[in-house]
Design a protein around this nucleic acid. Structure first.
Lengths: 352, 352
DNA sequence: TTGTACGCGTTATCAT
DNA sequence: ATGATAACGCGTACAA
């Protein structure tokens, strides 16, 4: 594909990008007006066979595609949607992205992406930079209050994932945290566990819900539940607090972590400390990240439907952006389920 | 030529968003012309203290920020850069994204993101949709030839990661695959391994380089190297081919996989098949994904500097977009290093 | 130092 | 069925 040198460009030194054909070029080449070209391309309006033929030919010849910015100026839409995740390296969020990716592509929307890096990146400026370049946003419900307030004030179509934020009328997607935790709790209770420790994450409002669900499951039993909050929900943090959680005087016979990353760190470090999992202690987490099945033993967890969450959130957002009736505010609950692997097992009744 | 899922068509009665303040509103409020406002805001030009005061005040009062689309029409730049990954769920790529994220944010560029999903999403349409909305692109060097050719023809600033693509003059970032594999090979050779099997990935050109590096390391020794190519570089695929690779007649005493995901699958399945790792067989991979340290035994791997790669690629792209001299074509080599964990150990000389 | 006026590529409106 | 033209919001020559 050798492009003949442009006689008008002269000895241009700058690596100027060949400027793309405009709708006017197409119109001229096809011998019609720009209005005709525009209507034919996206208005869906029909014309005489011969005109359509000529326009289509010109579009092909010139490799024309409309300029999204010029189009956006008049339509008021960008053709982009944004997704803000708290940590790209957490497989839970990558599954969320994967889930959101497909419906967006199908709707012809591009995905603008931002990583808050769990507080490392400033939330508000990130949101502000994004907001003018997208038609809508998918964000975590656990952004700062400041960021959430700004978002509401901006009147941008938004779908929250994780849980409903404190804000009033909005769209959100997430699991029933309390119910899911209760399911996991009953699993542990039925296995005979009686000294359960919850490693919560202070940064997530729904960490409380999970704690309450756990408590609910053990209500009426003679179990002893305790809670230990951490500031980061990462594997490193799990490793760091392992000894503190696992080796104290009244050692737990089961530990439930806020998420799988924490659980992974706890599991590894427990073994490094000489504990046998699940013989000495059962360990479980939330999210069902895929790497929980590659540890030994495999990690028992609660599947929070990460990918489904992303998909549903994106569908809601698209509906909202299009101004459809289906875009009514409300919280959509994703089904959660307990995934039992080797890291939880029946407590031996015999004192070890 | 009516596109069914066109987001811009249809009887969209979107809820009218409160329209943002324009530069004219600011000019009027400050009692100056739009030119003054524009120059003050981004031209960096100075004005009388009083005028600057009034303009700044008006900007604050109206919460003005320039319309990126209108601005883009004039400047010819979008303020976005794109990154195309082959699989968001592969931690190697999320580290890459994380690495690219920061320099982009620092440069005031938004990140547009696309997931090829290892061939599930069509590459060329994805690229085409992206290309008009970004000032530059970071893409894998192992896109389809068709996609690469189109990219070159588009004259868009592009940085390739992984390795230099077949194309002539371009910017690329990656490790020395052959050298890195040779390092890993020497590690295995020194441990006494003699029957080594390489599980390659047919989809990546540089899988060959890794194979050659391995061979190089065993040159002159009485080792027997064999190669087994797979079509997907995922943990599932690693599990699927484990028995075929590990249990054949002349069973390998060491297996090197194209990447850590394959290695993870192999490791897990090896143990499920009753093999002890590393006693019966050593296993190693590439990328140093973080989850390789949470398996038992930990996974020996080659750190390919995923995050650094993303960071360097983004810096190159920014230089290129800005038209800086530093944006000369060439391949930037990232340092790789072998990370030894429990999955590789010295071969017992005694026949087991 | 400041303002006027034009053009960027597109779509929508109205006229033919 | 097709065309002419006015916006959209901004940057920037050029004029004052």
């Amino acid at each position: 594909m050798s492009i003949p040198s442009d006689p008008h460009s002269g000895p241009s030194s700058a690596p100027a990008r060949r400027k793309a054909a405009t709708i006017r070029d197409v119109a001229q080449a096809a011998g019609v007006s720009t209005a005709t070209v525009s209507k034919f391309i996206n208005g869906g309006q029909r014309f005489t066979r011969e005109v359509e033929e000529r326009v289509a030919q010109a579009v092909r010849d010139l490799g024309y595609s409309s300029n999204p910015m010029a189009r956006g100026m008049i339509t008021g839409r960008t053709g982009n949607v944004g997704i803000v995740v708290l940590d790209v390296r957490n497989p839970h969020f990558t599954s969320l992205i994967r889930g959101a990716s497909r419906p967006a592509a199908e709707a012809g929307l591009n995905l603008l992406f931002a990583d808050i890096a769990e507080g490392l990146a400033p939330e508000l400026p990130t949101l502000q930079a994004l907001s003018r370049r997208v038609d809508g946003l998918i964000v975590s419900a656990r952004l700062s209050d400041e960021a959430l307030a700004w978002l509401v004030a901006s009147e941008l179509p938004v779908v929250y994932y994780g849980g409903p934020p404190s804000a009033a009328a909005c769209c959100s997607v997430g699991i029933d945290n309390r119910g899911a935790a209760a399911m996991l709790g009953r699993h542990l209770r039925d296995l005979g566990h009686r000294r359960v420790r919850y490693v919560g994450f202070a940064g997530a409002r729904w960490s409380d819900d999970r704690w309450q669900g756990l408590c609910e499951a053990f209500e009426g039993s003679a179990a002893c539940l305790a809670r230990h909050d951490v500031r980061a929900a990462t594997a490193d943090e799990g490793e760091r607090i392992a000894s503190e959680v696992l080796l104290r005087e009244a050692a737990p016979d089961a530990v439930v972590a806020y998420n799988d990353l924490l659980a992974l760190g706890l599991l590894t470090q427990a073994q490094a400390l000489g504990l046998s999992v699940p013989r000495d202690v059962s360990i479980a987490g939330f999210d069902n990240i895929v790497y929980g099945s590659y540890t030994r033993p495999g990690l028992t967890t609660v599947d929070t439907g990460s990918e489904t969450t992303g998909e549903v959130a994106m569908r809601q957002l698209i509906a909202q952006v299009r101004g459809e009736r289906a875009a009514a505010p409300g919280h959509e609950v994703i089904a959660a389920r307990v995934v039992v692997r080797g890291s939880t097992a029946a407590r031996d009744v015999v004192v070890r």
